[in-house]
């Protein structure tokens, strides 16, 4: 149904009002504010994680990140629950793609995996981390599936479900570990903080990559349905 371009005045006025109110609110702020940066920077120094943002994400506010992983996994599962025909895409992509795409995929995927690993590794000191790595890994997964190296239906098979869940499950296990040692949830012991964070990051990368791949493949799977109508 083609939409005729039109402006509705009331929604427009409402949006403009929101704009004006936000500007007014921001304008009322003082020019400088420290927020929590001082505490956070000091805390990060103490904890040994050089990148403060990573320290905030995985340590100080690790609980947010735990639930955020849950959000991503939940969305993936929600999208999986909406598939009509899980095998539609698999039927369309039946064999390995032609020589060029095959060769390129063979060349790129290992590089992407290395890049993903690198992004995770440098996350502790600079920009990077599980999400960035996971995104690259997810792209690799999609590439593998579309070029026929991996069957798209695998995206919802039992092994894939394990991969999807392993990051969150590991994160939970690591979060619960301190409880046995007398701490609270996510209170990493100081001596093993770095290695635990790294372990979580690596497995999270895997799960995030799997999630993104699954999100793509699950919603791509029944394209033919809509086109048929």
């Amino acid at each position: 149904m083609p939409e005729r371009p039109r402006i509705r005045l009331v929604p427009l006025a409402a949006s403009l009002a929101v704009f004006a109110l936000v500007l007014r609110a921001v304008h009322a702020l003082p020019d400088t504010a420290t927020g929590l940066s001082a505490e956070m920077t000091a805390g990060a120094k103490a904890s040994g994680i050089k990148n403060v943002v990573t320290a905030v994400l995985l340590d100080f506010r690790g609980y947010d990140t735990l639930l955020e992983i849950a959000v991503l996994m939940l969305a993936t599962i929600a999208v999986l629950s909406l598939r009509t025909d899980p095998d539609a895409l698999s039927r369309r992509i039946s064999g390995v793609a032609g020589p060029v795409l095959g060769a390129l995929t063979r060349a790129y995927v290992p590089i992407m995996i290395v890049v993903a690993g690198h992004l995770v590794w440098i996350g502790s000191s600079g920009p990077g981390g599980a999400f960035q790595g996971g995104a690259v890994l997810g792209a690799a997964g999609i590439l593998l599936a579309l070029s026929g190296f991996a069957r798209p239906r695998w995206s919802s098979g039992a092994p894939m479900r394990w991969v999807l869940a392993v990051g969150l499950l590991t994160f939970i296990a690591v979060a619960l570990l301190p409880l046995a040692l007398g701490g609270t949830l996510l209170q990493y012991p100081d001596e093993s903080r770095k290695s635990l964070v790294l372990l979580v990051e690596i497995l999270l990368t895997l799960s995030i990559g799997a999630s993104l791949t699954s999100l793509f493949l699950a919603s791509a799977s029944d394209t033919s349905e809509g086109e048929r109508r």
């Binding site: 509705r8 929604p11 009002a17």
Partner: peptide, 20 residues
């Protein structure tokens, strides 16, 4: 949708105006 969501945004605007 248009009516209801616009009403909501207007409600938010009203709340902000009342609050400030």
């Amino acid at each position: 949708w248009v009516t209801a969501s616009t009403l909501f945004v207007l409600l938010a605007v009203a709340l902000v105006l009342l609050a400030t």
